[in-house]
Write a protein that binds this DNA or RNA. Structure first.
Length: 553
RNA sequence: UUACUCUUAGCUCAGUGGAAGAGCAUUCGCCUUCUAAGCGAGUGGUCACAGGUUCAAAUCCUGUAGAGUAUACCA
């Protein structure tokens, strides 16, 4: 346990004890020890006196006085206590209470921030899951960045995480992909076959056709089932490989790629209907098979098998989620674009029907990204073939900047991605601010090497005598707390904000204090320890959002 | 029509019961000194509106207005 966190807990316990000794019955009180935003208001602050107003029937300020009188300051590194505003009790800490954090960070190194849980729950995070019918675009990139960051954060927070991509390789989209490929192939042979209306018109399909032509020549000139099956499989794998490569370049890896087709092949799709039927929530109406999802909060019941006996999209998806549940995860998190949010209630309904739990599946909705170019919205469509792909994006803006940009904002805020701004003013991108802090630290250590200083990074940081060093130390100590919060709230952007804050206090410290002082090796050693701890923390934090920590810029 | 999400500084956005925040823009300072992609200071807000709950509401509840998305026996 982090020293700072345990001290906070000790203070809380001490406060509880005081309240008890004062004779107030406050067993159910949730005492908060917060860190005020304004430094004027101390290092910690508690609302305790306000909470007690009802029980004590006194003004909060009077209660606060009683509490403060009984507080043992020396034991808990408190230098001063104030009562402020409506009755907040503000604690000002002794500057040296944090110094143990430094050695803690340096010893933990890349593990600093890592939280070990005794019995961690198993979480499956499904994200991206774009159809293998074309390139990933902007929205997928945002989903990939947030999903990947969330997985990294959950892992560090101590959960057991599986990253999964559901490949829709069985439906109409793939059928259209196959037909489009066939059309482009015939065009290679000089036959004037148009790409179907619902087909894919992107240039990637031409590439696929060309490669098929090179491989097979005019062998598949005639229509046949064999040709259809072969081309369909070939096109799908081509697109999927491209997606895998793009994601990997984007520093996003998956543990499992699940195939919809395989669910059909293993005969598990029909079984999904049977399982729901066993629970008594399946009925026949006008020749179709329905799932009574309204029993679990959906707007209307949903069709699983159409009157022509073919299955809807929902059916294999339910089978897929049954499969995930059977693999033993405690929680399923689906990361979806906002355009699919209407789909969630029916899926949740199926899971609640089967498990009896309504929080087994959690949906994280990612709002839309609007692409702005030349001051106006740039519509994208996979079918028109004009969309900006994840590859274009990385090429124009850079991986670090794209990852940082997407991780910076809350998933549920819609965002405009201004291409002109991102490219022309790329030096103003906040990612450089954070990376620059890391590069500066590396530079300090290079200097220390060059000057051949006989220093060693202190095991203990003995005395904090500057405000800037103290601010830095304090920010370093908060890292584990941010991780837990980001994980529990599914909010990677909290980490990005932490990174910015940490970089900010470091830059401030850097300007105020010269680290290397050849006249005073002892002080230099101590400051180098602080700087080392900053470098470790910054790097670990950047790692969580998939951004590199350069030594030079 | 209904459902979900959003509405906070000129712009882009954090904060989700406890004391209104950051970046950009703008104004003024700081490079002979470990990287100025940096630092310091200033300007800027009835937290969309109206009620309610609470000692306390930007935050929770209800309603209203505006924006986005979705409302298929498509996938």
């Amino acid at each position: 346990m982090n020293k700072v966190i345990s001290l906070q807990q000790d203070i809380k316990d001490h406060l509880k004890e005081i309240v008890f000794n004062l004779g107030y019955n406050a067993e159910n009180l949730n005492i908060l020890l917060e860190e005020p935003k304004e430094k004027v208001n101390g290092d910690y602050s508690t609302n305790l006196a306000m909470l007690l107003t009802k029980i004590a029937k006194k003004q909060p300020k009077l209660i606060a006085n009683e509490i403060v009188d009984r507080f043992n300051k020396d034991k808990y590194y408190v230098s001063k206590i104030d009562i402020a505003g409506p009755g907040f009790i503000n604690f000002y800490m002794d500057n040296n209470y944090l110094t143990t954090v430094i050695s803690e960070i340096i010893n933990a190194n890349e593990n600093y921030g890592k939280n070990n849980q005794d019995n961690p729950i198993k979480i499956n995070v499904e994200f991206v899951s774009a159809n293998p019918t074309g390139d990933l675009h902007l929205g997928h990139a945002r989903g990939a960045a947030i999903g990947d960051s969330l997985c990294r954060i959950l892992t560090v927070a101590g959960f057991v995480v599986t990253r999964e991509y559901y490949v829709n390789d069985a439906g109409n989209q793939i059928h259209n992909l196959a037909l489009s490929t066939i059309a482009r192939y015939e065009q290679q042979l000089g036959i004037d076959t148009p790409v179907p209306e619902n087909g894919y018109h992107g240039t990637d399909i031409i590439d696929i056709a060309k490669s098929l032509f090179e491989k097979y020549g005019d062998m598949y000139k005639e229509d046949s089932k064999e040709r259809y099956d072969l081309f369909r499989k070939y096109a799908k794998e081509y697109e999927l490989e491209k997606i895998k490569k793009d994601l990997s370049n984007f520093r996003v890896e998956f543990d499992i790629w699940s195939s919809e087709q395989k669910l059909y092949d293993d005969n598990r799709v029909i079984k999904a209907i049977e399982k729901l039927a066993e629970k008594g929530y399946i009925y026949e109406f006008e020749g179709a098979t329905w799932f009574k999802s309204t029993a679990f909060g959906d707007d209307k019941d949903r069709v699983l098998r159409k009157s022509d006996k073919s299955l809807t999209y929902l059916t294999p998806d339910i089978a897929y989620h049954i499969d995930k549940l059977e693999r033993g995860y405690d929680k399923l998190i689906n990361i979806l674009g906002a355009d699919h949010h209407g789909y969630i209630p029916r899926l949740k309904a199926s899971i609640e029907c089967l498990t009896g739990e309504n929080d087994k599946l959690e949906a994280l909705i990612i709002q839309m990204v609007r692409l702005i170019k030349n001051g106006e919205e740039y519509k994208m469509s996979k079918r028109s073939g004009k969309a900006l792909t994840i590859r274009d994006l990385i090429e124009e803006v850079g991986i670090d900047a794209v990852r940082y940009f997407f991780a910076m904002r809350s998933p549920d805020s819609q965002m405009d991605f201004d291409i002109d701004l991102a490219t022309s003013q790329s030096n103003d991108n906040p990612v450089y601010y954070a990376q620059y802090a890391h590069a500066r630290i590396s530079s300090i250590f290079r200097q220390a090497e060059e000057k051949n200083l006989n220093y060693k990074v202190s095991e203990q940081y003995l005395e904090v005598n500057s405000d800037k060093a103290y601010d830095l130390l304090k920010k370093l100590s908060e890292f584990p707390k941010f991780i837990v919060e980001a994980a529990n709230k599914r909010a990677p952007h909290r980490i990005t904000h932490y990174i910015y804050e940490l970089a900010s206090v470091f830059h401030s410290f850097y300007n105020a204090e010269k680290v290397i002082n050849e006249e005073n090796i002892e002080k230099t050693s101590q400051l180098l320890a602080l700087v080392k701890a900053t470098q470790i923390t910054l790097k670990n934090a950047l790692e969580l959002i998939g951004v590199s920590a350069p030594d030079k810029m």
